[in-house]
Structures are given as C-alpha cells and as structure tokens.
Simulated assay, not measured.
Amino acid sequence: MPAPSPKTPKTIAIVSQKGGSGKTTLALHLAAAATHAKKTSCVVDTDPQATAAAWGDWRGDFLPVVVTSPPARLARTIENAHKQDVEFVVIDTPPHAESAMREAIKAADLVLIPSRPRAFDLHALEAIAEMVNFTKTPAYVVLNAVPAGATKQVAEATEAAKALGLKTCPVTFGERADFHRSSARGEVAAEVDAEGKAAGEASALWKWTAKQLRG
C-alpha cells in the first residue's frame, strides 16, 4: 500500500500595505512559537528585502526554517513544504505589493494584518479589506506597537477596522524592546526574556492563532 499523504500544512499570510507595520516580527514569532509547540514550521519570505531570510541566516541551524520564494512560486513552495511534512507555514509579504499579497491571501487559511493603531496605518487597511472580503479568507487585524495604556486608541482602531469589515485579534503587541533586540540576534523575544511581556504576547498570539486554525 502507498504511504499516506502528509496533511496539508496550515498556512497563515501576514500582509500589510505599510512598511514597518511589524509583518516580519509577527511571522517569525508565530513560526518560532509553533516550533516550541512541537509543530514543524517554516517561514516563507516573499519580500525582496529578505529580512526574514536574514534573520534565519543569523539564527543558523536553529528552527524554524526560513525559505525565500517569489510570489509567483508561492504555491509550489508550500507544496514542497507539504512534501516535507511541514505542519505550519507562515508567509511574510512585502509592503506596497498587491500581487504578492493576493497570492499569499489565496494560499492562506488565515490572514493576519499587523497595523499600528494610528490613522495613517489604519487607512492602509482599506485595500487589504477589499482583497480578503473578496476571497472570504478569515482575516484579523493585529494591533502592533501599541503604546502603554492606549485603551482608547485600541478601541478606536478596532472600530476603524470594523467599519471596513475586518475583525481585530484580541491579542495586541506592545512597543517592546525585546522584539527589536531579539530580531537583531536571530532570536525571538522568549529567547531574550522568557518571562517578559513581549514573550507573553507572542505566546498568546500563537495560542489564539492555533485555536482559529483548529476551528
């Protein structure tokens, strides 16, 4: 009898029109958290700047694996991951690249849209809202670099996303030094300070994301 086919990996697309929104930070922390949870995971870096791939180079032989792929070959790259029994794929996309975002959204089971809770950043959600509303792919805005005590700002950002037909993830990322410090060393926040707030936020995002994918 032929061997059973491996399960298709659960795929998350991290998309944003804005540069500096935190896409790579989310992608790397989700994939690392999946690895910590004993899930075989990889990051697919479709950004020509290859920031995630550089992080992978700095990280060396430690998981998760980071691979690069032009958007046109994204489906084939995920298919190859499928053949290698990868369970969890995170796609990191470039800003200002609608074709790349469309390919990622098309391939995804879940779309996460990082955004700072500021007017200019929230305005950039409109184009992505149109894409995900067209494909019907489950999508959530993840508020990133949220200032301490910004309860009103978060509430206003949530309403702005809702007006575009987008839901907001209940987990937010603060403006944490551990996110920046860890990335520059090929690490994630939990490897810098396992008890820190950044590590806690990353862990909470993974648990919430895993629940969405199971549902």
Rank of each mutant, 00 (worst) to 15 (best):
E159Q: 15
V86Q: 00
A129L: 08
V171G: 09
H36T: 14
G56A: 03
T51I: 07
V86F: 06
T51R: 09
M131G: 12
P138E: 08
A13S: 04
A139P: 02
L205R: 03
A145Y: 09
M131C: 14
A119S: 13
F88S: 03
D57I: 08
L164C: 07
A32P: 01
A75C: 11
P9R: 02
A184V: 14
R59C: 05
V90H: 09
G186K: 00
A27N: 07
K23G: 00
T151L: 12
G19C: 06
K39F: 05
F179T: 02
K39A: 04
C169H: 03
C42A: 10
A157H: 09
I78W: 05
T46L: 03
E130I: 12
H123F: 14
I105A: 03
A52D: 00
G19Y: 01
K211S: 13
G149V: 05
A160G: 08
F179C: 03
L125A: 07
A204H: 02
D109I: 04
I14L: 06
R76D: 15
W208I: 00
V142D: 01
D57L: 15
R118C: 15
V132F: 10
K167C: 14
A184N: 10
V154F: 11
A124D: 05
L74Y: 02
T11Y: 03
L28C: 02
P71N: 10
A199R: 00
V43Q: 02
E201T: 05
E87D: 07
A97E: 04
K162C: 12
G215H: 13
P2W: 11
G149K: 09
V15N: 04
W208C: 06
E98Y: 09
G186D: 01
T137M: 06
A50S: 13
R59D: 01
G149R: 06
A150D: 02
L205W: 03
K162L: 13
T11K: 00
T68S: 12
T51W: 03
A145E: 09
C42R: 10
L125G: 06
A210P: 05
L125F: 05
D45E: 07
R185H: 12
A54P: 00
T46V: 09
P6T: 02
A34E: 02
T35C: 12
L164K: 10
V192F: 03
K152R: 15
A157Q: 10
A50R: 14
A50W: 04
E87K: 08
A27I: 06
R102H: 11
M131F: 14
P95T: 04
G186R: 01
A127Y: 10
E79S: 12
C42I: 11
S5E: 15
A190T: 04
F88Y: 12
H36R: 15
V44F: 05
K136Y: 13
A202H: 00
K197C: 11
G186Q: 01
V146P: 08
E126H: 14
L205K: 02
E175R: 10
V65L: 14
P9Y: 01
R102N: 14
T77S: 07
L213C: 11
K152I: 14
D47L: 05
K23Y: 01
P117Q: 06
K162M: 12
Q49A: 06
